[in-house]
Amino acid sequence: MKIAVVKYNAGNVQSVIYALQRLGVEPLHTDDHHEITTADKVIFPGQGEASSAMTYLRDKGLDKVLTSLTQPFLGICIGLQLMCRHSEEGDTDCLGIFDLGVKKFEKGIEGYKVPHMGWNIQVCNQSKLFTGLTNPYLYYVHSYYAALGPETIGTTDYIVPFSGALHKDNYYAVQAHPEKSSTPGQIILTNFLAL
């Protein structure tokens, strides 16, 4: 099975690669259009800043590649946010796979720190991505969130309920870091590889 991990300027992806290796998969970390298009599965990970990430993706022509794929695709953390229509971070037009806006968590609300950092419950809908899981604790680190929408398949509550996971056709996305989310995270990655 050929797994492509999309290479772009969105921080450290080593943890995702290690997590896949623990599942017995040796992924290809690449920005090559052909390698991505011909992969069996594509993972779009990362942490970073939306506008510089989108500029990089457009410069490399990856925006068109990523939005025209037909194989199972998984966005993680900022990957999920970049798959939405628009992000308040740097007022950035994103890939638009999900017709949702990405907003910044309101600061200064008593009892809530920003970033949302740590383990939180995700209430999961029926989805192949969540087979074997019921409302798991997952590890989150983020200051922006995707609103709820018809494509939401997992809901997490922090200040407001937001899209913890999204699904449309072959495109899946999770806001938490499955690669850092202990056993539940491993199950999500295993389920994705089995799609």
Partner: peptide, 8 residues
Amino acid sequence: VASKINIP
């Protein structure tokens, strides 16, 4: 550690 541990 990172290759073996799946928590932050």
